[in-house]
Nucleic acid binder design. Structure first.
Lengths: 347, 347
DNA sequence: CTATATTACTAACACGTGTTAGTAACTCGT
DNA sequence: ACGAGTTACTAACACGTGTTAGTAATATAG
């Protein structure tokens, strides 16, 4: 236990060759002439001593860490409120490990403006970072970018050339709304997932309006309410909508979690989903399937988002010529019962 | 961008001192006599050159990585089926970063028996690992332990002296069952969260039986069914229970996710929760609060589990004398409506 | 038989830090 | 004026690898 670490030097000695030869054999360096006999002796010595090259020394020599950092700017509650982030993380580390990279997980404590994630790249803990929850006013981000740091964002920043991977929020919201339109609804309300300070909220609202416009329906701001991540906010928003003189026949709620509260509000006034009010959510959280009624919603390519982010970042790190550095991933409509698509007749 | 990295050598030159002095000043090494003037010059030079010490070189010199690995053995679906793992991860990295450690996230692809996580410690990517989802038949685990690797398990291994942090499954299940007993139930069934191959399942079943025994109720195996993580399995198991000649008046379902299916089954035969059948779940998933009816359940100290695991591991790494290496964290009963505790009268 | 090419290696440097042992210069007590 | 102690540093080594340039020994060609 307290015995010294086995180094390539030890292997060399046992095999009766130089350390250089050991390196050549074990790394299988192409173009190096090594006799079959020596090769065998080195392998045998390494096996016998249970030799494992030291990753730190290797990094030092290579000038590369083979590590990517995953920086989480959102608060824990927000990031892990649903299935989403874990899946992103999973996709990320899958892509990383497929290319021989490791993943450093670095959540930023809420309210920490000291720019701790700068250290990740300044001190070379990682070769690059995937940054989730970017903010436009992030000066640190611009700074390290200017210094040549490799960064990929998860989510977009308006008017920026920083590489990113994002989910097609506009397209998804449009799809959700069109689904309701196709089912015959004309008076369709919307409850956002969060305040409009969040780009995703703005995008989903834009998609909703786009769908209405495409079908020639007048967009009416009195039918738009603002959620705030929580079921409570959905409950409040829906009550507000129900109190209107002209009740909507369908609501697009841009977050399944928020939709949960909306359903409760509808039930509480004695109305039924989807018979009286049809509902489409967004996110496809794991329990959407088991809600009462099962929620029609938009599924996000969470795994793909993480995978794509890591993949893009690693290509940037490797210095490959990357022609497409801003990627938008398609969403998918999952039809269940809450939208009324499975009702035999619509009046 | 392609300009060379700023090293402590550069700082030394600019400040007109040796590299050693730079190291003494910047690391504030105690007992070293440095004049106030020199000290200032070094700080100024470092600031001016925007110097950041290279983490890799530092590790090499220190012989320590200041990194802990978080190894996930469960499949993604299983690990992230609910809020649990993300919270563990969050607690873990909080504890780590509080002590100057970074967190390497290393999920093991399902079906990968090549023992990839061995490399984490063999190649010194990390000073130690927190291993989630340990298996008794894991030879790799015993091997690296024998070589002196620092390992902390999340979850217990029977008859082992390996340090671990775990949730009190027995106590939690006992508490859940006692809650039902206190509400007047005598004929209490149980649906497990998973097959008994999983230690957590066995422990929860033991807790259920313990509670019955303590109250002098005869434990009846015909009232026990086995879930399999999913709502579907809960649906099936509950239907099976309902088909019995003598229906239980209450059921302890050792997983909220499984309980979801159980509720559906009960509803489908026209019975009510909790009036006809009372229900207590386990895990307190985020949506338990919003189920219909809101689910009484056992809340797990997920954050504390991660935090405790990292903390214990780092203490082991630091060589501190640790007197308690096997830690069990208490759970908490969250009373909502599904258990009938809020009904005014019980018949 | 000699010049050249090939084979099979190795010596030495680079990566950037932390740290131990040592050394001038300067102060101080006697 | 001299030895001892203090102050303020520095030279040199260690950490463990990857890699470039070079070198003997052997094979091949003319």
């Amino acid at each position: 236990m307290s015995t010294k670490r086995v180094t390539s030097h030890d292997v060399a000695r046992l095999a009766g060759v130089s350390r250089t030869t050991v390196s050549f054999v074990l790394n299988n360096v192409p173009g190096m002439q090594i006799s079959e006999d020596t090769r065998r002796r080195v392998f045998e010595a390494a096996r016998q001593l249970n030799y494992h090259p030291d990753a730190t020394a290797r990094r030092m020599a290579a000038g590369q860490t083979n590590v990517i950092g995953f920086v989480l700017r959102q608060s824990h509650e927000q990031a892990f409120a649903d299935h989403f982030m874990p899946q992103v993380l999973s996709g990320l580390s899958q892509a990383a490990s497929a290319q021989g990279f490791h993943t450093l997980f670095e959540p930023i404590p809420p309210g920490d403006n000291s720019g701790t994630y700068l250290r990740l790249i300044n001190e070379r803990h990682a070769d690059g970072i995937v940054l989730s929850g970017p903010r436009s006013d992030d000066e640190d981000l611009l700074k390290i970018r200017a210094e040549g740091a490799k960064v990929v964002l998860l989510g977009q920043l308006p008017d920026s050339d920083i590489p990113f991977v994002d989910v097609d929020n506009v397209g998804g919201a449009c799809m959700a709304t069109q689904h309701l339109i196709e089912l015959g609804h004309q008076r369709i309300a919307m409850i956002t997932n969060a305040p409009l300070a969040y780009t995703a909220s703005t995008a989903r609202l834009a998609g909703y309006r786009q769908a209405l416009t495409l079908s020639g329906i007048q967009s009416d701001d009195r039918l738009v309410r603002y959620g705030n991540f929580t079921p409570q906010s959905g409950y409040t928003a829906m009550n507000d909508l129900l109190a209107q003189e002209l009740r909507p026949t369908a609501v697009f709620v841009a977050s399944d979690t928020v939709a949960l509260g909306a359903v409760q509000a509808i039930r509480q006034v004695g109305l039924r989903v989807p018979e009286d009010i049809a509902l489409v959510g967004f996110d496809d959280i794991p329990l959407a399937e088991f809600m009462d009624p099962p929620l029609t919603t938009i599924r996000l390519p969470a795994l793909g988002l993480g995978f794509g982010g890591a993949d893009l970042l690693i290509r940037l790190i490797s210095g490959d010529e990357v022609n497409l550095t801003q990627i938008i991933l398609e969403t998918q409509l999952v039809v269940r019962d809450s939208s009324g698509a499975n009702l035999s007749i619509r009046k």
